[in-house]
Simulated scan of single mutants.
Amino acid sequence: MKFVTIFCLLICAPSLLFADEVTAKREGKQMVIRSGEKEILRYQAEPGDLPRPEISQKFIRGGYIQSIHTPAGKLVTDDFPADHLHHHGVWSPWTKTEFEGRHPDFWNMGDGTGSVEFVALNDVWQKDGKAGFTARHQFIDLSATPPKVVLLETWEVGVSTTGETHVIDFTSTQSCATPSPLKLPEYHYGGFGFRGNAAWNGPANCEFLSASGLTDRVKLNTSRERWCWVGGKVDGETCGVTILCHPANFRFPQPVRANPDQPFFCFAPQQLGEMEIVPGEKYVARYRLVVADGKPDAKAAETWWQEYAKVR
């Protein structure tokens, strides 16, 4: 019976037997997730050194995904891009806010009114062919005297691979750190953000495909989508990331921000009007990133989303 079982696995699903182990390991100030020797993801925990000497110290930060690679090793993210130094691979600060009568901006760090700080790694795990970690952050109102913690945030990140795709599950849970709510007025970006490879800079170099079939970023901007592929060519080959929005998310399907010039994408529920994160209630945002080489496949993306929608 064991021989028959192993034979069936060899014929029907050889990748299950020979897939490289997915590992998570702390390396200095970063958490690195690999499939065998191939790097998938780097999370910046404590702030690292700025990549260029001309960048102001105001932009130093941790608590974000610094890089993501495809199965073929193509880099699909950017970090500290020259045109938007506050952009990173994957990060999740709020932009236009109101807190106790002040207006800290946790996104545009160069303004010096708000920041998001790494606090701790609570858990690093490997199980059932997956690996991941749990990290804690805090949102700081720098416009207060002294600075004041506004939100407490927990990230849960889990990574798996099929060999043809890398799958990154992302959950952000935010709660108030004080008896005061954080008000989020209507605004066109803020929240879960993705910044693509520098090779995709410029209107002609970054491509999109959404669940509603939109490929024009002007038409895509502000549309409500359950998933969207963002990509372009890296070293002459097309690759990209399909970002899936979980149906349990607030105001699903959430409206999106697609920058007209840069390879930037954001799910922004506050586009639909003011919202609040209030004491005693948790704001939970869940997304799945499917990272792959090659051109986008709408049918495959819809199948990925249908599968993700069943995850509770």
Rank of each mutant, 00 (worst) to 15 (best):
K2I: 14
F3Y: 15
I6L: 15
L9G: 06
L16Q: 03
A19F: 12
E21L: 12
E21N: 10
V22F: 10
R26W: 13
R26E: 15
E27Q: 13
G28E: 15
E37H: 14
I40E: 11
Y43A: 05
Y43I: 04
G48F: 11
L50H: 03
L50S: 07
R52P: 01
P53A: 12
P53H: 11
E54C: 08
E54A: 12
I55P: 00
I55H: 00
S56L: 05
K58T: 07
K58F: 10
F59E: 05
I60H: 08
Y64N: 01
S67L: 02
S67H: 04
I68E: 11
P71W: 06
A72R: 09
K74R: 15
H84R: 04
H84F: 05
H88S: 11
G89H: 11
V90I: 15
W91V: 08
W94P: 00
T95K: 12
F99A: 04
G101I: 07
F106E: 06
N108Q: 14
E117T: 03
F118C: 02
L121C: 08
G132T: 07
G132Q: 08
T134Y: 00
S143K: 05
P146Q: 10
K148V: 09
V149D: 02
L151I: 11
W155Y: 12
G158M: 07
V159W: 06
T161P: 05
T171H: 07
T173A: 12
S175H: 07
P179R: 06
P181K: 04
L182K: 01
K183P: 00
L184E: 00
L184H: 00
Y189Q: 02
R195H: 14
G196Q: 09
A199K: 00
N201L: 14
G202W: 08
G202Q: 04
L209K: 00
K219Q: 14
R226K: 15
C228K: 01
C228L: 13
W229Q: 00
G236F: 10
A248H: 06
A248Y: 01
P253C: 13
Q254G: 01
F264M: 08
C266W: 11
A268P: 01
A268Y: 05
Q271S: 03
E274N: 05
V284K: 01
R288V: 02
R312K: 11
